[in-house]
Simulated assay, not measured.
Amino acid sequence: MKFSFSTISKAAPVLALLAAAVAVPAAHAADFDDYARVVSVTPQVEQVNVPRQECRTEYETSQRNYPRQQQAERSNGGAIIGGLAGGLLGSQVGGGNGRIAAAAVGAVTGAIVGDRVENNGNNGNNYNSQPVYESRPVRQCRNIDSWETRTNGYAVTYEYHNRTYTSVMPYDPGSRLRIHVSLTPRP
Rank of each mutant, 00 (worst) to 15 (best):
E54V: 15
G95S: 13
P170L: 02
E148W: 04
V14T: 11
I80H: 00
N49M: 11
R37V: 09
A26E: 11
Q53V: 13
N120H: 14
G106I: 04
V39T: 10
A12I: 03
V14R: 02
R142V: 05
E73D: 11
R64D: 09
Y154R: 03
L15S: 10
V45T: 15
Y160E: 03
Y171F: 15
N120P: 02
W147F: 09
R64G: 04
A16R: 03
Q71D: 10
L177T: 05
A29K: 07
N125M: 09
A16N: 00
A107S: 12
Y35H: 01
Q47M: 12
S75F: 09
D145K: 08
A26C: 04
S4Q: 06
R142W: 10
L84F: 12
V24F: 15
T57D: 14
Y35K: 03
R56D: 12
Q69D: 09
G82P: 00
G78C: 09
T149P: 00
K10M: 13
P187V: 03
E46W: 03
P170K: 05
G114D: 05
V38M: 04
I80K: 00
E54A: 06
A111S: 11
N119Y: 04
G94H: 08
A11K: 13
G94Y: 06
Q70E: 12
I80C: 04
T109M: 11
Y66M: 14
E159S: 15
G98M: 13
Y59D: 03
Q69M: 10
W147D: 09
P170Q: 10
H180Q: 11
C55K: 03
H161V: 10
E118P: 00
A20K: 07
S167D: 14
Q70D: 15
Y165R: 00
K10H: 04
N162H: 14
V181A: 06
Q130M: 11
N125W: 08
S175M: 04
N162A: 13
T42W: 06
A20R: 02
Q47H: 14
Q130D: 12
S175V: 15
Y171L: 09
V113Y: 00
V117M: 10
P13Y: 04
I144Q: 01
P137G: 04
V181E: 06
